[in-house]
């Protein structure tokens, strides 16, 4: 049975959890550059929001994404959440501590795949932080500090036969003192059939 097989979170070997059966090839569904620039706010703000038209994801298919979030803060001890929603349901809440001022990058990839039908899904997300308050932040020294990928599984029950909104949001724990303070540099969504 066709499937997606991951390396384990962090880049090691391993396989998926239950119900892994997704076919390819892919169809590019949506590519976009930054749309929303987040201001100096601690409110949850959309980074990317895409309407996935009903029936786009086949009954044994999947929606996959890859996006990069760039942030900036003047608050030395801060934190942020990057959350993922599908059909109005929050299925991922990635929380990060931010230990220094300056900029960071957060790369995400993951997928939602229909299982036995188009109403029950399994979701998987992984993210990596490239914390770069050093040379990229303007004047400081020190090498970039990418960390390992970390992945999480989720279960969903959404009717993909109907329109559903896929979106990613960001929320700072404290107002970051920057405007803009975050944006999605690029997002890429594809359909696996």
């Amino acid at each position: 049975m066709p499937k997606i097989t991951n390396v384990a979170p962090g880049g090691g070997g391993g396989g998926l959890g239950s119900g892994t059966k997704t076919k390819v090839f892919n169809t590019v569904y949506d590519i976009r550059a930054a749309q929303t620039e987040v201001g100096d706010t601690a409110a949850e703000t959309d980074l990317v929001s895409v309407n996935v038209v009903g029936g786009t994801i086949p009954a044994t298919g999947a929606l996959r994404w890859w996006f990069l979030v760039n942030t900036d803060t003047t608050v030395a001890i801060n934190g942020l959440h990057i959350r993922l929603y599908f059909g109005g349901t929050k299925f991922a809440d990635h929380q990060y501590g931010v230990a220094a001022t300056g900029t960071s990058d957060y790369a995400h990839w993951g997928y939602i795949q229909n299982l036995d039908d188009a109403a029950i899904q399994e979701a998987y997300t992984e993210t990596v932080i490239a914390s770069t308050p050093g040379i990229y932040g303007g004047g400081n020294t020190g090498a970039p500090k990418p960390t390992t990928w970390q992945g999480t599984w989720f279960k969903l029950t959404k009717a993909t036969g109907s329109d559903q909104i896929w979106k990613a949001t960001i929320q700072w724990n404290l107002a970051p003192g920057r405007d803009p303070s975050a944006r999605s540099l690029v997002s890429y969504l594809e359909i696996l059939k």
């Binding site: 066709p2 499937k3 997606i4 097989t5 991951n6 390396v7 880049g11 997704t22 076919k23 390819v24 090839f25 790369a107 990839w109 992984e126 990596v128 932080i129 490239a130 090498a143 970039p144 990418p146 960390t147 390992t148 990928w149 696996l192 059939k193």
Partner: peptide, 16 residues
């Protein structure tokens, strides 16, 4: 239909 096997997800540390 082909399968998808993820071979590598990494945050390379090499810099220029």
């Amino acid at each position: 239909m082909p399968d998808v096997r993820v071979l590598d997800v990494s945050a390379p540390t090499a810099t220029v």
